[in-house]
Simulated assay, not measured.
Amino acid sequence: MRKTLLPVFALGALLLAGTASAQTPPAPTRTRATIESVSETSIAVKTRTGQAVTIALTPETHFVAVSHGEISAIQPNSYIGTAAAPQPDGSLKAIEVTVFPESMRGSGDGHYAWDLPNANTMTNGVVGKLDNAHGRTLTVDYKGGEKQIVVPDDVPVVTLAPGDRTLLKPGVHVVVIAAKAADGTLSANAVLAGQNGVVPPM
């Protein structure tokens, strides 16, 4: 079981994947896919673009359960992550919101580039001001700054929890954070697996 290890696991490395500089090792890749099959040492997946990919599992692979959440879970002092798109007024429009458990508070803290087609930023931080009067508008505070984020009512909200290999089943939607070797093979650092049909929106 890896459940007790997850709070120690630097989930920030997972959420900051893609921000490496030329002086650091290549950033992990994010593969958004559906599991086709599972073996003791790998998972075969089909990406959202239809590509078949095999990703190795190792004793160091971490597993995270992604479950449906309610927008009411976003409260002042909640620790969240949100992929968002810039708006003309300087605010951000959320495409998804991930509510972290208390044990993961601080994971991936900051504001940085993201690689969803409709969301090119990720902001992880603490919910400060929350205005429900004109739609849900948040101020998210992180080390070194803050961002104002508008959260439409129909935005997917998910919660995270420590998981294990039993999450991996054919048909499960995943986001796999993997290291890419020189020969192009992938080895999973972490697998975020949707529960009960959830498609991890990050």
Rank of each mutant, 00 (worst) to 15 (best):
S107G: 10
E102F: 08
P86C: 07
G128S: 13
G144F: 04
T123H: 00
A65H: 02
H68V: 10
P117W: 02
A181N: 10
I95G: 07
G110H: 09
S107D: 10
G128V: 14
H134C: 00
I177E: 02
P86N: 10
L116Q: 09
D141L: 11
W114L: 07
D115G: 00
T139L: 05
V155W: 06
P152Y: 07
G110F: 07
E60S: 14
A56T: 07
T159W: 01
A179T: 11
N120C: 04
V151E: 05
V172R: 13
S78V: 03
T61I: 07
V140P: 05
F100V: 06
T123K: 00
Q75V: 15
L130F: 08
I177P: 00
A56K: 05
L130K: 14
T139D: 09
D89G: 12
A161G: 08
A83D: 13
P59K: 04
T54V: 15
A65R: 05
T159Q: 08
A190D: 10
T58I: 04
V126M: 11
D89I: 12
V140R: 02
G106Y: 02
P59T: 03
A94P: 10
V99D: 05
S91T: 15
S67N: 11
G106H: 06
Q75E: 14
Q75P: 06
K147D: 06
H173S: 15
L168T: 03
V140T: 09
I177S: 08
V172N: 13
P88F: 09
P152I: 04
F100E: 02
D109R: 08
A161R: 06
L168G: 04
D183F: 12
V97I: 13
N77T: 15
H134E: 07
G144M: 05
F63D: 01
S91G: 13
E96H: 12
P86V: 13
V174W: 06
